[in-house]
Design a binder for these strands. Structure first.
Lengths: 242, 242
DNA sequence: CTTGAACCGGCCGTCGCGGGAGGTCCTAGC
DNA sequence: GCTAGGACCTCCCGCGACGGCCGGTTCAAG
């Protein structure tokens, strides 16, 4: 039976154990004897398995005595839906991996610490954003276009530099110039979120992420950790003063 | 630690058990106490996990004390290759499922037996053809174009009808007309295989499949089983006579 | 001092089998 | 009839990355 059907003996015994396909007969000595009907059922099982259907689902649909071609159709349709979801996840993973590899290659072996920090950032990111929210962010980035992202990056870098100066000079948090800088900072960050509805949730997630992990985030930036920490505290004080 | 990092307590204990991430300290009572360094390592672990890297590989690459960014790069590149292979398989599966669903829908609930037989055919197909050979067949079909496939199908149907007549009339196997029909049959089947090299293997696999499962194949056809079996035997006799 | 939440180690379950141990059976050749 | 070796049997452990439960300990707040 195993030779003819291209399955392993172990698989056949497994199907017998779980009651999915028990041979209709046994020899007096206990050897499994498969009938013609058993062979047909095995072919059906193997075909559904090769389509990724679980043994449990196969059992239910094959034992559905209502001649259930409808049930079979539903099962395959559901399988297809699941597969499409899976394919989406695989595409996202592939994209992420390619991005990371590109980052490594472009920097041609950057500071290992910095790369490990990037890994940490991915983790934080995963923790705080669900997949849908991440898609939303990606769409938003796509809408903005890559040049405006570059512009935002440089504007952000400028903001950080200016704010760091104020931190060093300990400018009072009520200073209108400082408050305007912080407002620009928040507006800049806000541009990367969608408006209303789910956008609010994304914003809230980002806020939580920032609140809980501002130090981690700081480490991933091209400025020294302690100065960024000071900057973050300063920002919070300015916001509370507002 | 679990709350902050977004992992479950169980996962943390698991990492401890397998020695991937053991807390640097323990309280006197035995509670795990994670240091700042442990937190960073956990973030790295989670990030690599979210990229689909196995715990074993994570352990090896994180314990690589050569500051191994190169090892990391290799690991991620390998991960990417594996993902791409997986994506190909997923695409093939999706295609198969869509084809099957289309078949069910077009026939708007055909004979359940016939559909189950289709499933059996898939299984036989899987048994005898490797993935690469299947791809080759698919390419060949694409080259031929769908209309020529339809033409071949109807030509085949015509051949079967004519040959069935000869079987009923028991025309001698040496009859030149019969031999020409069989030659057309073989040529028709041959058109669906590539020429030379791997094509020969595909042909051989098809031959084996036909030899071993001609009855199964017969069941999937729109002609009655017993007449097809007679036809198959007749074909073999004609070929041997040639 | 109590109480409820959090933590501990340990063990079983998942899914689809693979692989091995130790014993029985079957068939071919002498 | 005997023997050799292959095929079969049942029973059990293993994977990978944890989830979940149990009975007991520890911790922080009131």
């Amino acid at each position: 039976m195993a030779r003819v059907s291209g399955t392993t003996v172990r698989a056949l015994r497994h199907y017998d154990e779980i009651g999915l396909l028990s041979p209709s007969e046994r020899t007096a000595s206990g050897h499994r004897r498969y009938t013609e009907l058993d062979v047909r059922r095995l072919y059906q099982v193997r075909a559904l398995r090769s389509l990724g259907v679980s043994l449990e689902e196969i059992a239910s649909v094959l034992s559905d005595s209502t001649g259930g071609l409808g049930a079979m159709r539903d099962l395959l349709a559901e399988q297809l839906r699941g597969l499409e979801v899976h394919a989406t996840q695989v595409r996202q993973l592939t994209e992420q991996l390619r991005g990371l590899l590109g980052q490594i290659d472009r920097a041609s072996m950057p500071d290992p610490d910095q790369f490990l920090t990037t890994l940490e950032m991915i983790s934080v990111f995963e923790t705080y954003f669900t997949t849908e929210q991440r898609e939303q962010l990606a769409r938003r980035r796509a809408e903005l276009g890559s040049e405006s992202i570059e512009a935002a990056k440089s504007e952000w870098a400028g903001l950080v530099e200016e704010l760091l100066r104020h931190v060093e000079e300990d400018t009072p948090v009520e200073d209108p110039q400082v408050r305007s800088l912080v407002a620009r900072w928040d507006a800049l960050a806000g541009r990367f979120h969608a408006d209303g509805g789910d956008g609010e949730q994304t914003k809230a997630a980002a806020q939580r992420m920032w609140d809980d992990n501002s130090e981690e985030i700081g480490r991933s930036l091209p400025w020294p950790t302690d100065r960024m920490r000071d900057l973050v505290r300063y920002l919070e004080r300015v916001r509370q003063a507002g």
